[in-house]
């Protein structure tokens, strides 16, 4: 038994028949072959699978693909535009905010949500926002700095414009 869903992922419209039990993360990874979104656990704890669903950071390892019917989805692959990195992507490179890179897409997507509603976060705001995303490599220190870098860059760009 399959159900038809329509979703827009990174600006592209898709329509597929999916099994009702198919997880959204597996739809993205296995059906659309967007493998930047990762699975690190099965309990919505680690945050490696964080994407944006209708603009909100969402852990898609515990969301069904059928629940995403009609939704606008952004994954890490859709974050940069016209070859220009998002300030968070740039920040993670500038501040050494990643090592093995496995948690990085989820981290960036969570931080992107934070900066949408809190453009000038304090260090504690950032740490609190990221507490649902595990990183085993960096000790979080440089991830916090990466988000601070992006926040500064975005606010400076806003002043210029």
């Amino acid at each position: 038994m399959s159900t038809r869903i329509h979703v827009t992922v990174n600006g592209v419209e898709y329509s597929h028949f999916v099994e009702p039990r198919l997880l959204l993360v597996n739809y993205l990874r296995d059906v659309l072959r967007l493998t930047g979104t990762h699975v690190g656990c099965d309990t919505s704890s680690c945050g490696a699978c964080t994407i944006h669903v209708n603009g909100k950071a969402t852990k898609c390892c515990t969301m069904l693909a059928v629940q995403a019917d009609g939704c606008q989805i952004t994954t890490i692959e859709g974050l940069s535009h016209n070859g220009e990195l998002h300030p968070l992507q740039e920040g993670f490179n500038e501040c050494h905010g990643l090592q093995c890179g496995f948690c990085t897409p989820g981290m960036i997507m969570t931080a992107a949500d934070l900066l949408q509603h809190t453009p000038q976060p304090t260090e504690q705001d950032i740490r609190h926002a990221l507490e649902g995303n595990f990183c085993r490599c960096t000790g979080y220190h440089n991830i916090v700095k990466s988000v601070q870098y992006a926040a500064k860059k975005i606010s400076e760009a806003a002043v210029v414009h």
């Binding site: 930047g36 979104t37 692959e77 990195l85 992507q89 993670f92 890179g101 990085t104």
Partner: peptide
Amino acid sequence: EDKRFITGHG
């Protein structure tokens, strides 16, 4: 090596 990881292309 960062570019592939921050763009989801690892």
